[in-house]
Design a protein around this nucleic acid. Structure first.
Lengths: 89, 89, 89, 89
DNA sequence: TCAGATAAAATCGCGC
DNA sequence: GCGCGATTTTATCTGA
């Protein structure tokens, strides 16, 4: 199978456009990494910072609901087997 | 380049061992997915459940420290610009 | 919000089943890693081996079709600008 | 635990810089997706195109070496058990 | 400790 | 609409 000249040109064109944009994108990824690195150098916790960024992307209400459910589930699962428990401590 | 017969046999042997174990592993992955699916069918929130599983893997002290830092950072960042603030609302 | 006792028990049950299966799954992951390590020790290229395993998972016909298209596209894109070319080398 | 005002400001500064760059990065991701979509609309195979882009990122020599090894390993593993084979077909 | 590779998880888009 | 598959992102792990 072979592509005709025009089709080849169009394909090459697409690929090159993608590669160009991808290049810029990589640069920004590097920039972000650098900022985290700098922050780390000033004593901040990168992992926590990443979580902050992630959380701020989400709608606060949804986040609150989620956090609450995590709490509820966590308590439910951590609960000691209490089948025979008669009275709350 | 070609591998001699013995080398081929060893390679084939490795690959087949890997594929065998990988098969079992896939089966377990499916099992886990099925359990989540069943839980979802009973009304539980799968995403939250995944977070529970993740949290329980970690040492609780580390988790507590992390959560606290998230709180601290979150408050710091959410804080409104208060340079000219004179008195707490 | 709180879950009633029965719901808690069901949730705990799900989580524990997941954790159990996950445990086994981790063990198999380790096993696979060990086999690769052993192969590496005998001089095989682990990265290539991983690709072999990946390829063999796919249906060969589909893979062949895909590979062929990759070839076609690759040639189309790599082709030097040949607008003024007069005769094939 | 609390951060002093200066530290808060620095943290907020980092987070905002990250969010800003991340924003641009998202935009470029969208752009790339759009180009693929357009190519798809003109009849090209997106999955194959993605592989072309991936391959072209790698140093061609390394890629060639790698591909060759894949071939060698593939043949070695696909080879039918031929222990009793007496003569090449 | 750092970067590169691998694995897990979340997200997005398609097709049933 | 819902699961499914593909992509992308995140986290973990290994090796330098």
């Amino acid at each position: 199978m072979t592509l005709d000249t025009t089709t080849k040109a169009r394909l090459r064109n697409f690929i090159e456009r993608i590669e160009r944009v991808d290049e810029e994108r990589k640069a920004l990824t590097t920039d972000i990494g650098d900022i985290y690195k700098q922050a780390k150098g000033e004593g901040f916790d990168v992992k926590v910072m990443r979580e902050i960024v992630k959380r701020r992307k989400k709608d606060p209400a949804a986040q609150a609901t989620h956090d609450e459910l995590v709490e509820v589930y966590m308590r439910a699962v951590d609960t000691q087997m209490d089948m025979f428990e008669r009275e709350p401590a």
